[in-house]
Amino acid sequence: MKVLNVLLMLFFVNVLAQKTTPEIETVKINDKIYVLKGIGGNVGIFVGSEEVFMIDDKFANVTPQILAAVKKITTKPVSYLINTHWHGDHTGGNENMHKQGAVIISHENVRLRMNSENTVRGKVKPPAPKGALPVITFEKDMMFHLDGEDILAYHVHNAHTDGDAHIFFTNSNVIHMGDTYFQGKFPYIDLDSGGSIDGYIESANKVIRLADDDTVIIPGHMNVSNKKELIEFRDILVDLRDKISHEIEVGKGLEDVKNDTSLTKDYEKQYNWNFINAEKIRITIYNSLLNN
Rank of each mutant, 00 (worst) to 15 (best):
L152W: 11
K227C: 09
V238W: 07
M9C: 12
L230V: 05
V120G: 05
I189H: 03
L191K: 09
Y34G: 01
W273D: 13
M177I: 00
A17M: 11
F144P: 12
T20W: 01
K130H: 02
V135Q: 07
M142L: 15
G38C: 10
T75R: 09
A102V: 03
I248N: 11
I276P: 07
R121N: 12
A165R: 02
D239M: 04
H98L: 09
N171G: 05
K123S: 13
G131D: 08
T137R: 04
D164H: 01
V6F: 12
S196W: 08
M143E: 12
F138P: 01
D31T: 14
D147W: 00
D213V: 12
D57N: 15
T91K: 01
V43E: 00
N226L: 08
G38Y: 11
D150T: 15
A68T: 14
R111K: 15
D212Q: 00
V62L: 10
L81R: 00
K280D: 11
D239C: 06
E229R: 12
G122Y: 02
Y181T: 11
S203Y: 03
M177F: 01
L289Q: 06
G251W: 10
F233Y: 15
G44K: 00
L67K: 05
V124S: 10
E232D: 13
Y271S: 03
S116R: 04
